[in-house]
Design a protein around this nucleic acid. Structure first.
Length: 414
RNA sequence: GCGAAUGUAGCUCAGUUGGUUAGAGCGCCUGACUGUGACUCAGGAGGUCGCCGGUUCGAUCCCGGUCAUUCGCCCCA
């Protein structure tokens, strides 16, 4: 193997791929802006603590998927595996309690040491939306509405299905967790190996087990709704009602739980069956305890993250490349004139293709390959008259026009 | 981390029951056409058949390992 390969689980985004990538990102950013979410960015790496403390030491991400390293100063750093913790850290660091609700959009690369598959990479990209400092169910509704709007705009909402559940507040969740652990402890011998491990790490996950034996046990397990206190029940009802008002279809999935420790109340996922085992396209929830875990004042928050690669896989249409106009010198004497003209047009914001070499025939071929709208040819004849030959490459027609009329001519092309 | 499949030109894929110079289409380059693209025609470049080892007179083909991708599990965006 003589040619260098990219690191496992990483991918190059060539210009063709990047157009789609940028389209997804821009669409998300524009819609987020309409809802009042301004774009921000946080560093790609943080102190390991930021992720370890918030996501939970026992979570898969923290226990085996982080790219951590020791800096020269001896501190443990980690390439971010998600955006939420970093943004919350930033919220605290910058004293943004003054600005609540703090509504932010972000996107960028994330890193997780996982086994690569389609729609799952070690370096991948997420779009992310956070609303910090709002305890109202209206915030949950808005955040989900933004996600739905983005999927709608990308024309992939039809491939997705919104699953939603509540994990209740800390009190409800702890009570339920205790009941669940007690129940499964009594039936330990019947649990699958996977679920036995889950019992220690994240017992709620057992509810979602695909193992047939587990499912039998789950059927008789304590039911979450019995443990939700009045506040949690009412809160969830309000969220669902809001979704209905927005015309966003959903499906309550009582087995939907989250892998990360910081989630409370609303948990949701836009899932698809078009990507094999990687069903989650946009997923998130409420994290009322997170800011406090990071050392801030108790502050509620809700947000989501979306996988850009997965969104790109679902999106069928790649936007067209900008169609340039080719400037073609005919003969060496015209080089200077065309170079200057190309530069002036580019400064006007017009996409100009001008090859570095080649006779007019080659340059025309190249213009055609690049899907140019038109070609501007200038040789000695045209120079003598301060004119150019303007060829419409779609129509196949051409005419000589004064250089002074060129800008108007180009504008006419649209 | 576990199980399975796949790996031949830039791309999509043929192929050899193991035999000497490994093919096609598309793409790329050159020319016919040194002031005009799409069509056509004629040439050309590009492969240690993923990598390492084994069996064999001989391996792209069989066997083992390894790496990568894909699928399922786990988990997640």
């Amino acid at each position: 193997m003589s040619s260098p390969q990219p690191v496992r689980g990483t991918h190059d985004l060539l210009p063709e791929d990047f157009r789609l990538h940028a389209h997804v990102r821009d669409t998300a950013r524009d819609i987020a802006a309409c809802f009042g979410y301004g774009e921000m960015a946080t560093p790609i790496f943080e102190f390991t603590e930021v992720f370890a403390r918030t996501m939970g030491e026992t979570s898969d991400v923290v226990s085996k998927e982080m790219y951590s390293f020791e800096s020269r100063s001896g501190e443990s750093m980690t390439l971010r595996p998600e955006y939420t913790a970093g943004i919350c850290r930033s919220f605290i660091s910058n004293g943004l309690q003054q600005n609540v609700p703090f509504k932010a959009f972000a996107c960028g690369p994330m890193f997780r040491y996982e086994r690569p598959q389609k729609g799952r990479q070690r370096q991948f990209h997420q779009i992310d939306l956070e609303c910090i400092g709002a305890a109202e169910a209206k915030a949950d509704i808005e955040v989900i509405a933004v996600a739905a709007a983005i999927l709608q705009k990308l024309d992939v909402l039809k491939l997705c299905n919104l699953q939603i559940n509540t994990l209740g507040d800390a009190e409800s969740r702890d009570a339920y967790r205790t009941a669940l652990v007690d129940y499964f402890n009594d039936h330990k011998d019947k649990l699958s190996e996977d679920s036995l491990a889950r019992l220690g790490r994240n017992p709620l996950r057992i509810l979602d087990s695909k193992d047939k034996g587990d499912q039998v046990l789950v059927a008789d397990a304590p039911v979450f709704t019995d443990y939700l206190n009045a506040y949690s029940t009412d809160f969830f009802a309000e969220v669902l009602e809001g979704l209905t008002v927005h015309g966003i279809p959903y499906e309550v999935n009582r087995r939907l739980v989250r892998g990360l420790d910081y989630y409370t109340h609303t948990a949701f996922e836009f899932v698809t069956d078009a990507l094999g085992a990687q069903g989650a396209v946009i997923a998130g929830g409420r994290y009322d305890g997170l800011i406090e875990m990071l050392g801030g004042k108790p502050t509620p928050g809700i947000g989501w993250a979306g996988g850009m690669e997965r969104l790109c896989l679902l999106t069928e249409t790649t936007p067209e490349e900008i169609r340039p106009i080719a400037v073609i010198p005919v003969g060496d004497a015209a080089e200077q004139v065309t170079t200057k003209l190309a530069h002036e047009l580019r400064l006007q914001g017009i996409a100009i293709e001008m090859a570095f070499k080649g006779n007019p025939g080659k340059r025309m071929k190249r213009a055609n390959k690049l899907n140019a709208k038109a070609a501007i040819l200038i040789g000695e004849d045209e120079m003598a008259r301060d004119a150019c030959t303007f060829r419409n490459l779609d129509a196949g027609t051409q005419e000589e026009i004064p250089l002074a009329d060129l800008s108007a001519k180009i504008a006419d092309l649209g």
